[in-house]
Write a protein that binds this DNA or RNA. Structure first.
Length: 420
DNA sequence: TCTGGGGTCCTAGGACCC
DNA sequence: TCTGGGGTCCTAGGACCC
């Protein structure tokens, strides 16, 4: 048996932990830049607010005080997530951290235990130690655990735990699960399947293998097997190293200033460098992309990208920024106003196996030392104490975050301000 | 006026090899 | 008229996840 444990309305619940007065109130959390809604409390859901709604569509409700709004506070959610995972792992050493708010737990070595009780224990301990409500779903495959979790959240509101452990329960669970709620069936496929008369997860399992393979590839076939209790998607106990890394942002206002975009791109490249170093990788390819505002009907749309081959693979922010600026100069056109830009590094390999070239000038070794010191200082002293000159003096102007809560668990100075 | 960010996997088709 | 067989690698596009 596998369990899927996840935080209910995770970001919204994190905000509530530190402001108990928000309990029972409709609250939403916004994306970076305060653009769209990415998390909602149950009360906000009850008001009919949908995931991904642009904030300006609910301005009226906000002005009337009927709904409370928070900018996203990722340092807080990340730290809360880490603490929550610690608790999860106490219940099974075989854990896969699947996303910021959910994890699979493998109970296959536990024999025939009382899963319902186990789920209730997990929920109680997380509630007590972290203060975030969670739901727990048990099933014989990861896909079934996902379905059980959904049922727990939707129907088992008293316990928050659901167990699917017999063929009879599987059938019942599949019949009450809409096809679009199945893990692995997204918007396109559920639309397609509904046209074919497939409404529930159960209907899907009645389709022939050839039909599924033909229209949905082996991925669809795996989902069918998983729904029938045959495990095809293995646990990943250690997070795989990333094959590509990207940092991108939407700008608060569209701009045609090369200097502004270049500084932003320098920050994105530096961020990619930091992420590369944290997983001990170097990159062979660096892509810079930018685009104008696709919602702007008055001005022509322009989107472009350019990829640089890095002969001497690197994770040095200094190198990456230089390459990024080279790429930017190729695609930047002054006549457009840019709304979004980003940097992606790919062709990653372990830094230990970095390929040397004939023309290696040894600068990489020097950079490595500088980067090590920079990363250490930044880790110890808070956010980006030391950075590269091209990144500019302040990063604050890149992000609109008007309603951000304090970094309660990671920034004691902010917490102190609140207490005063 | 205002619309997020960061990933993965699979397949088909083209280019190339002997 | 008839035009081999068996591969690999790369890329773009489409699907999915949170």
């Amino acid at each position: 048996m596998y369990a899927l444990v996840d935080g209910n309305n995770f970001y919204a619940s994190c905000e509530r932990v530190f402001k108990p007065s928000l309990r029972d109130k409709p609250i939403v959390v916004l994306s970076n830049n305060d653009g769209v809604i990415v998390a909602r409390s149950n009360e906000a859901k009850a008001l009919g607010i949908k995931m991904g709604t642009p904030i300006f569509e609910i301005n009226k409700l906000v002005a009337q005080g009927k709904i409370l709004v928070f900018s996203s506070n990722y340092p807080l959610y990340g730290d809360m997530s880490h603490r929550m995972m610690q608790i999860f792992s106490e219940f099974s050493p075989d854990m896969e951290v699947y996303s910021i708010d959910e994890a699979f737990l493998d109970f296959s070595t536990f024999g025939n235990i009382d899963f319902k009780k186990k789920g209730i224990d997990i929920k109680a301990k997380v509630q007590k130690n972290i203060g975030v409500p969670v739901s727990v779903g048990f099933g014989q495959t990861k896909t079934l655990a996902k379905i059980a979790n959904r049922i727990a959240k939707k129907f088992m509101t008293n316990t928050g735990v659901a167990v699917i452990d017999t063929p009879k329960k599987i059938e019942k669970a599949l019949k009450m699960t809409e096809i679009e709620d199945v893990w692995g069936i997204g918007r396109r496929y559920s639309h397609f399947l509904k046209q074919k008369g497939v409404k529930t997860a159960w209907d899907f399992t009645q389709l022939s293998d050839t039909f599924i393979k033909k229209n949905m590839s082996v991925v669809g076939l795996r989902t069918k097997e998983e729904l029938l209790g045959i495990s095809c998607i293995p646990m990943e106990f250690v997070p795989p190293t990333r094959k590509s890394i990207r940092t991108a942002r939407t700008f608060v206002a569209a701009t045609n200033s090369y200097d502004f975009v270049a500084e932003a791109v320098a920050n994105f490249a530096a961020s990619c460098g930091q992420k590369l170093r944290s997983q001990q990788s170097v990159a062979h390819l660096l892509t810079v992309f930018l685009r104008t505002n696709p919602f702007d009907k008055k001005n022509p749309y322009y989107a472009n990208s350019f990829t640089i081959q890095i002969t001497e693979a690197s994770s040095s922010s200094i190198d990456l920024i230089q390459h990024a600026h080279k790429a930017l100069q190729i695609i930047f056109k002054k006549k457009y106003k840019y709304k979004k830009a980003g940097v992606m590094v790919s062709g990653l390999q372990p830094d230990k196996h970095r390929q040397l070239t004939l023309f290696d000038d040894g600068h990489y070794q020097k950079h490595t030392k500088v980067m090590r010191v920079m990363d250490k200082l930044n880790a110890e002293n808070g956010y980006e104490l030391v950075k590269i000159g091209a990144q500019g003096a302040s990063r604050a102007k890149l992000l609109k975050q008007e309603q951000r809560s304090s970094r309660y668990t990671t920034r004691w100075d902010e917490l102190l301000v609140i207490k005063c």
